[in-house]
Design a protein around this nucleic acid. Structure first.
Length: 498
RNA sequence: GCCCCCAUCGUCUAGAGGCCUAGGACAUUCGGUUUUCAUCCGAACAACAGGGAUUCGAAUUCCCUUGGGGGUACCA
């Protein structure tokens, strides 16, 4: 059992690519097979080295690794001993395999299974126009099938450009037993005429290169998105023409956005790019779990599982057939769950990377205080990017500008006034959070206030937040001076009464 | 247009003819805890797209309709 992922470096690492990779890894793992990586970098116009690097970094971040393929040495039609295009990194680069691809094209032409088509783009356009006018289905009419060898050679001699097309032969039905969908069949007459397999530039087309490469890499099971279903029919026709054994295919459902659009780099930008999750402080394991959890669920582990755990009872046939809608809330839930399972050292590492404050070498707080602070807020972190909005008031002063917050201060100024005078009386111990808490309680009794009315004004005054750790906890860490200072400056925001 | 794929709570899903009064998770709402917020705990809300057929019995099988999606290149 050999599976693979074959991304093309024409953009950032896409969530869909990762999901497909994950299922291939999972499937291979389940059957103690191998998983390979091929870079489909033949589109020189759109491929960029920068994207290649991003994709590789993304895979590294996600902790997805691959095996090194050996290839079909015995059946090789060309010289080298090892798989052409295989790098030391175990990656097969399609762009290095052009000669290999061409050799197979030649073979197909010689065997009469493919032919040269000299029709120009203009001719083909005219043909389609005419078909349209006649209300026929627009497709290539296989006009060049009949060109004789002599005529073809003559035209080549004249330097006329040509493409190579695969001869699909008589209309017939191509059927395969899809690993996920069951039997799928497509009539060759619906394929739009004999497909081009080599461009006039000499470069082979995607569908052809894929077949050659998958064959030589000995891929046995191809799991890919369902947007490839009609490619599969064409590819099977190529496998048949070449006499290659046909691998198993499985077509995964796509990921959609809420408006049921295919998640695309162009239209949905950031959310489609893995890099976004990395830079916002998602845990790779959470993203992996989320992605696997759409379309598959583990009978044994329920919602939360690693790839290794999922592999224990993975059944390819029970992967969902219908598309999954991207749900950031569920991803966030996974991420919170994974964060909560991290130990403090791990959290500190992440949090330090995302905070603008120097947490590991801090002048205001010692390491154990930092630990208290971080552990007090870690439960409310969707992603590490949010760290500073939860801890900033510990490290720096703030301006109370938000009208909601000012309103809370204004309505609760008596509480604040009372708290200031209580602190002034010297009866509160700022080394003991219970002392502070009891103090606040006594204010509640005195003013006959409780709940929100009592706590919110103080909380907002000292943290500019409506949520966070215990007030006593915050007060002890910030200290008496800072608390008084913040209470007083909060009062400046109130409408003056005295 | 043509071809192909898909169809269970708002979302991800469980469900392989009777275990389904359709289960779980996320989200939402309401309680409890926290004299506040968050956390945590408990509960509620909420779905088999529609119509036929097969069957003693259908979310599960078949057909049609509808809806959604994908493909239809000398892109990958």
């Amino acid at each position: 059992m050999k599976t693979r992922i074959a991304p093309s470096p024409t953009g950032n690492l896409h969530l869909g690519t990762v999901r497909t990779a994950l299922y291939n890894v999972l499937f291979a793992k389940k059957h103690q097979g191998e998983f390979f990586f091929r870079l489909e970098d033949t589109d020189r116009q759109r491929s960029e080295e920068q994207f290649t690097q991003e994709i590789l970094e993304g895979f590294k971040w996600l902790n997805i690794s691959w095996d090194t393929p050996e290839g079909h040495v015995a059946e090789r039609t060309h010289a080298p001993e090892t798989l052409v295009g295989l790098g030391e990194d175990g990656i097969v680069r399609q762009s290095l395999r052009e000669a290999v691809h061409s050799s197979y094209i030649e073979r197909l032409i010689n065997e009469g299974k493919a032919y040269r088509c000299f029709a120009t783009v203009e001719e083909l356009e005219a043909m389609r126009e005419a078909q349209k006018a006649r209300k026929e289905i627009e497709k290539y009419d296989n006009r060049s099938r009949a060109i004789s060898k002599d005529d073809a050679e003559k035209l080549i001699g004249e330097g006329k450009p040509y493409v190579v097309r695969l001869n699909l032969g008589e209309d017939h039905i191509i059927t395969w037993l899809d690993l996920i969908r069951g039997e799928v069949s497509i009539n060759t007459k619906d394929l739009g005429g004999d497909p081009v397999i080599q461009k006039s530039t000499g470069q082979v087309l995607y569908n052809f290169a894929v077949v050659i490469d998958d064959y030589e890499m000995q891929i046995s099971h191809i799991l890919r998105g369902e947007d490839h279903i009609s490619n599969t029919a064409k590819q099977i026709a190529i496998y048949e023409a070449l006499g290659f054994p046909i691998p198993e295919f499985g077509h995964l459902p796509l990921i959609f956005t809420k408006d049921k659009q295919k998640l695309s780099k162009r239209k949905h930008g950031d959310i489609a790019s893995v890099n976004t999750y990395k830079t916002q402080g998602y845990l790779a394991k959470a993203l992996v779990n989320y992605l696997l959890g759409t379309s598959y669920n583990s009978a044994k582990y329920g919602e939360i599982f690693t790839i290794a755990e999922a592999a224990e009872d993975f059944q390819i046939a029970s992967v969902s057939k219908s598309p999954a809608i991207y749900d950031i809330q569920k991803l966030n839930w996974y991420n919170r769950d994974y964060i909560s399972k991290l130990n403090y050292q791990e959290i500190l590492t992440y949090v330090s990377r995302f905070s603008r404050f120097d947490l590991e070498n801090n002048s205001l707080f010692n390491p154990s205080q930092i630990q208290l602070i971080i552990e007090s807020i870690k439960e409310s972190l969707d992603k590490f990017e949010q760290i500073d909005e939860h801890i900033n008031y510990f490290f720096e002063d703030f301006k109370l500008d938000d009208s909601e917050l000012v309103k809370i201060i204004d309505e609760g100024k008596e509480v604040i006034l009372e708290f200031i005078s209580l602190i002034g009386s010297g009866s509160l111990d700022f080394t003991d959070q219970n002392s502070i808490k009891n103090g606040i309680n006594s204010i509640g009794e005195k003013l006959n206030m409780k709940g929100k009315k009592l706590f919110f004004p103080i909380r907002v005054a000292i943290s500019a937040k409506t949520s966070g750790p215990e007030l006593g906890f915050i007060a002890v860490l910030l200290g008496k001076e800072k608390i008084i200072e913040r209470l007083n400056s909060a009062l400046l925001k109130t409408s003056h009464r005295h």
